[in-house]
Amino acid sequence: MAQSYTIYINETSLIITEPTVKVTKSYQQIESKKFSFSEFYARVKSGALNGTYVINTSNAKKLFKTIRDSLKLIEAAGGLVSNEENRYLFIFRKGKWDLPKGKLDDGEKVREAARREVEEECGIKVNKVKDKICKTWHVYEMGSKIVIKKTTWYFMSAKNQAKLVPQLEEDITEARWIAPGDFDQVRQNTYPLIKDVISVVG
């Protein structure tokens, strides 16, 4: 089965894929033979590269693993949470719409971390953690190190949670239930990573 991996660097996406996988977004092609992720990252950070880039390779898994193993790994988990009105829970953090998520505590199971982070960041009670949606990979700087964050996303439900309490100490200034028909307001001011996660519902 053909493999495809997407690495997000804020507004920029790097898709590592195999020739048989169709990429539906508009993108720029990158040659795989002399590809250096550190050089690619530096060019993205300098503003020289922006948008979606695709590397076609016969072994996407191997190239992705090489990149992942060269960086410090951080594990996180989060949720796409629906209520009884089929609205979904979003947070507004650092000037952009986002989904509740956070890092795993030592020894914590991924599913438990996803529930805890959603409850802490939005001041609600999650009734049920459902199926896994996907994993996303986000590269950024933490101090002097470049890290890769693996976030596992779950469908969740939270019923009768009228009051939302954004976690201000995590720079969350608003938490809001938004219907899929109104997702355009989110898409206009969010990250490509979040757009991809919410595409499963609208």
Rank of each mutant, 00 (worst) to 15 (best):
A114Q: 08
P19T: 12
T12C: 07
V186Q: 07
E108F: 06
S4A: 14
R111S: 09
R115Q: 15
T136F: 00
R116H: 05
D131L: 11
P192A: 11
K149H: 02
L104P: 07
T20P: 07
N189V: 08
S157G: 04
K125C: 02
Q28A: 03
E117W: 03
T190I: 11
R68F: 10
I172R: 10
K61L: 05
R68N: 09
F64V: 03
A113S: 15
V165Y: 01
R111G: 04
T190Q: 13
L71G: 10
N56A: 02
G202M: 03
A114G: 06
A179T: 00
S46E: 07
W153I: 14
G102A: 10
T152K: 09
S82I: 06
T17Y: 09
T190S: 13
K101P: 00
T66W: 02
Q28T: 12
S58E: 15
L99Y: 01
C122Y: 02
F90I: 08
Y88L: 11
V110S: 03
V110M: 06
P19F: 12
Y140P: 00
K149P: 01
V44H: 00
Q167E: 13
C122S: 08
Y41E: 12
E11Q: 08
S199L: 07
K22H: 11
R68S: 11
E11K: 04
I148S: 03
A76R: 10
T20M: 13
M142G: 12
E174A: 14
V147N: 13
L168H: 03
T151D: 05
M1A: 13
G78H: 02
Q185A: 12
Q3R: 10
H138N: 04
K163D: 14
N127E: 13
S199N: 10
R87G: 06
R116P: 10
Q167L: 12
M156F: 10
E121L: 05
A162R: 10
S144A: 13
K33Y: 04
K132S: 13
N86A: 06
K195S: 08
N56G: 03
N86C: 00
R116F: 10
F92Q: 08
K22N: 15
E31W: 01
L71S: 02
K132E: 15
V81K: 01
G202E: 06
N56S: 11
N189Q: 14
M142D: 06
R116L: 09
T66L: 02
G51Y: 04
S157T: 14
K195H: 06
L73I: 09
E170I: 05
V110Q: 08
I55Y: 02
D131Q: 12
E85L: 07
